[in-house]
């Protein structure tokens, strides 16, 4: 239950961003559900003492959701992906990094900056991982299908 409100807030924020991306109709709900799902996974993985794997796993969940929904809804995966990763992306981290830089606080800048890049990297890696696996799976199915056709012809 303690997870419900944060996920709801993530959902609301995602709905707002859908208007910026010209996403319409029932997709306002389905894309934003991905954002809530990602934050739910992030919160559920509380046993990690490091943030990075939590971001990674949350993004893996979002990517799988996006791949499935993109096929159900017949849209490019990016439509579901971008809205859903919004609550995870380190916008605040970017801001603080640049603020430390402008204030001349070199050590805080380096620390915040590397943490921000790690989070962004973990999210990007998770997205690429899932999309690569899906692509491999699709290729494998096509190859098997071609083999099957080939056998029938012989």
């Amino acid at each position: 239950m303690s997870y419900f409100l944060p996920c709801l807030y993530a959902f609301i924020a995602c709905v707002g961003f859908d208007f910026l991306y010209n996403i319409r109709g029932r997709r306002l709900v389905t894309t934003s559900l991905g954002g809530a799902l990602g934050w739910f996974v992030y919160l559920s993985c509380y046993w990690f003492d490091n943030d990075i794997p939590r971001y990674f796993l949350a993004t893996v969940a979002i990517s799988i959701y996006a791949e499935i929904m993109a096929r159900v809804d017949k849209v490019p995966v990016i439509v579901y992906l971008i809205t859903a990763i919004l609550p995870l992306v380190p916008g605040g981290g970017m801001y603080y990094t640049m603020e430390y830089w402008l204030m001349g606080d070199a050590s805080a800048f380096a620390e915040k900056g590397s943490q921000t890049m790690m989070i962004a990297g973990a999210i990007a890696l998770a997205v690429v991982l899932v999309s690569s696996l899906v692509r491999m799976w699709k290729t494998m199915r096509r190859l098997r299908y071609l083999k099957h056709i080939g056998k029938q012809l012989h």
Binding site: V89, G91, G92, M94, Y95, M117, A120, G121, A124, L125
Partner: peptide
């Protein structure tokens, strides 16, 4: 500020690099 900060942009840029 979340409306302005380029969180998605930085993530996408890393995605481009990996790809």
């Amino acid at each position: 500020l979340m409306l302005l900060v380029p969180g998605v942009a930085i993530t996408n840029s890393i995605r481009d690099v990996i790809a």
